[in-house]
Structure formats: structure tokens, C-alpha cells
């Protein structure tokens, strides 16, 4: 039997088992059909938070990577602290801190009024901030590796032509690093889709929040959480599909100069 057919049979068997499971535990289809539109209504907010979060994360990761690679003690110190602190604390704590602790600071006595709007956010914005800051810290390493993957000879050639280090970074190094950075950034986006469910705990009416609140209130958590899981799975599968295509596209027509042939060294 060809391998592909075997694999198909295994998938089929898993499907049948899942259906049996759902039947055995009397999945309430009528209930879920009634509430599906409400739960699906959380998807736009989930996507909005994730697109906003990844955009912020890209900016922070770039700054973080430049800081960690910089020879300036201030930049490097700030970047190192950012990465270490954010990676060393739970995402959930960060979300709650930004949404619940910052507003408290804003209303401490003596805090000028203009500071308040800087510390009090609507929940979607707080979610974007928290996910962006958190993922930016992890993605700093991706960006740093991408920048370092560009051979030193490139920066050297640019310097020799008189380009400043900023010009070299912007015009020569980053455009080449992007090819290395984009595929793993796609993976981070997919991970963020799932982690965004955590902001539901802070009260953002996204996909998970809606599913679990309906489930709890109506004693139908089994139904609503199953559906939420399936929706997440569908979303991540869709974005994985595009991510894979992007990855092959980036890998193809590899424009980086191939490694130079073994050097004829001087006479030893």
C-alpha cells in the first residue's frame, strides 16, 4: 500500500474516532448553531489584535536587535534589559500589568493629568501593546540572527565606498536580512494567534473570551470550547499555508552570493 494511502487511512480513522467521541458525549449541535455567530464575532478582534501586535513586535524587534548589536553601551544595555525582562516574565502577567496596573498608576496622587491617557488604554490597545512588547522581545533574536547572517564583507564593502553605518544597515544589510527574518516572523504570527486568547482573560471580547463566557453561562463549555479550538486551528492552518509559500519563495532564487571558491592563499 502506498504511504500516502496509509496516511489517508490514519487521518480517516482519527476523524471517525473524533466523530464517535462527539456522538458518545452528545454534542449539542442545536445549541452551538445558535451561538456560533456570536463566537465567530470574536474573530475580527482576534485578527485585529494579532496584526497590530505583530506590527509592533517587528518594530521593537528591529530596535532590540540593533541595540544588542550596537557598540553603544546605552542602546545595548536597554535592549538587553528589555529582552531579558520580558522573556523572563509570563505573558499573562504582562497583559494584566498593562491593562490593570498602569491605570492605577495614572490616578496616584501627584501624577499630572496629561500622563493619564498614556497609561489608560482600551482593552484592544492594551492587548496589542502587551503582545507586541512580548513578541518583540522574542523576535529580537530572530532579527539579530538575520542581521548577522549577512556576511561581514557586505558591510565592509559598503564602508569602503564611504557609506555610513546607518546607510550600510539600511541599504545593504537589512534588505538582505529580511529574507532570513520573514519566514520565522510568520511562525511568530501564528503563535501569536493562539497566545492572543490570553487577552480574553483580561476581558477583551475576542474569540476565546466569547466562547468561554457563553460556555460558562449556559453550562455548555464542551460545545463552545470545541468550536473555539476548531476556529483557532482553521485560522492557524490558513496562515501556515501562506507562511509555507512565503518560505519557499524566500528560499528560491537565493540571491546571496555563493561562498567564494577556496582561496589561493599566499605563499606560505
Amino acid at each position: 500500500m502506498p504511504f500516502k494511502v496509509k496516511l489517508g487511512l490514519v487521518y480517516g480513522a482519527i476523524g471517525v474516532l473524533l466523530v464517535l467521541f462527539v456522538i458518545a458525549f452528545q454534542y449539542d449541535t442545536a445549541f452551538i448553531l445558535e451561538w456560533l455567530p456570536f463566537i465567530l464575532g470574536g474573530v475580527p478582534l482576534t485578527l485585529f489584535i494579532c496584526f497590530g501586535g505583530i506590527a509592533l513586535a517587528v518594530v521593537l524587534a528591529l530596535l532590540g536587535a540593533l541595540g544588542r548589536l550596537s557598540h553603544n553601551a546605552l542602546f545595548m544595555g536597554v535592549a538587553n534589559f528589555y529582552v531579558s525582562f520580558i522573556r523572563g516574565t509570563p505573558l499573562l502577567v504582562q497583559i494584566f500589568f498593562i491593562y490593570f496596573a498602569f491605570p492605577q498608576l495614572a490616578f496616584k496622587p501627584g501624577v499630572p493629568e496629561w500622563v493619564q491617557p498614556l497609561l489608560v488604554y482600551n482593552i484592544a490597545f492594551a492587548a496589542i501593546l502587551a503582545l507586541g512588547i512580548n513578541y518583540g522581545a522574542y523576535m529580537t533574536e530572530i532579527f539579530r540572527a538575520g542581521i548577522q547572517s549577512v556576511g561581514h564583507g557586505q558591510a565592509e564593502a559598503a564602508s569602503a565606498l564611504g557609506m555610513s553605518s546607518a546607510q550600510t544597515m539600511r541599504r545593504i544589510v537589512l534588505p538582505q536580512a529580511v529574507r532570513v527574518i520573514i519566514p520565522p516572523t510568520g511562525n511568530e504570527f501564528i503563535a501569536m494567534l493562539k497566545d492572543s486568547s490570553l487577552v480574553g482573560l483580561a476581558g477583551a471580547a475576542e474569540l476565546f473570551y466569547r466562547a468561554q463566557s457563553v460556555g460558562k453561562a449556559e453550562s455548555h463549555s464542551y460545545e463552545t470550547l470545541t468550536v473555539a479550538a476548531l476556529i483557532y486551528w482553521l485560522l492557524t492552518s490558513i496562515f501556515s499555508f501562506f507562511q509555507k509559500r512565503l518560505e519557499t519563495k524566500m528560499g528560491r532564487g537565493h540571491v546571496r552570493e555563493e561562498v567564494a571558491p577556496p582561496r589561493a592563499r599566499g605563499i606560505a
Partner: peptide
């Protein structure tokens, strides 16, 4: 300066390699 291993900018075409520095610098 001309290097042993060329160090052309691989993300730019030949002509772009030549005009990059005169334009930016």
C-alpha cells in the same frame, strides 16, 4: 577598494551595485 572575494551586493543588480554609493553617499 577591491576585495579578494568581490563582496558585490547580491540583492542589487549590476547597475544598482554601481549607482548605490554615488547616490546615497
Amino acid at each position: 577598494m577591491v576585495f579578494q572575494d568581490f563582496n558585490l551586493f547580491p540583492h542589487l543588480t549590476v547597475i544598482e551595485n554601481l549607482v548605490e554609493a554615488p547616490c546615497t553617499v
